[in-house]
Amino acid sequence: MKIEVLKGITSANDAIAAQNRQVLDRHKILTLNIMSSPGAGKTSLILQTIDRLKHQLKLGVIEGDVASKIDADKIDEQGIPVVQINVGASCSLEAQMITPALNKLPLENIDLLFIENVGNLICPAEFALGEHKKVVISSIPEGDDKPAKYPLMFTEADAVVINKLDLLPHLEFEVAGFRKAVEGLNPKVKIFEVSCKTGAGLEAWCSWISAEAKRA
């Protein structure tokens, strides 16, 4: 006997992501899913954003890593509520990992939640978590060919942050070509050029977040 199923393979994840989203919407928490290769500056960008927005918005962070709580400790030092998720053998955060993390956070006291995904440009694009916006960070040392090599990640993004701009004089990276490639894949995307080291460009990034948080 043949049974028609017609269910998406990630339908279970998508259903849980939708539940997470309901919880976040109910608490009016703008949630950003931050994705990049390892070392592109996810934690640095979150820390710099905390520094600039902590007097204006109440923040929270969920940290996803294969192992360790190094990143969560850095956030904790800033006095920001943080939950560390260690994914072990999994290559990405999944919606069912976020649900218990949300239960551990003081949601009534958060306006803006960062979910720092596992460093990886492939798998995190496949799993919705319940976020409102997907942010991809690409850093100068990685080279300007990442949109060509990992097109889906850039197709999915709401915002792309080019980080480590201070290294531009020392490395070959064509910013204009990179922007064109990203905009080709994704005409609606917002692109920000920043340096988490010097602070350059972070104002525009923070303004975008503030505006989005007001809408949440």
Binding site: K2, I3, V5, I9, G184, L185
Partner: peptide, 21 residues
């Protein structure tokens, strides 16, 4: 040679049917 492209097919990923006894 344009780089402005959109995906029109190839992202599907689902279980169409199963056969059981």
């Amino acid at each position: 040679q344009g780089a402005s492209v959109e995906v029109t097919s190839g992202r599907d990923c689902y279980i169409e049917s199963i056969e059981v006894e």
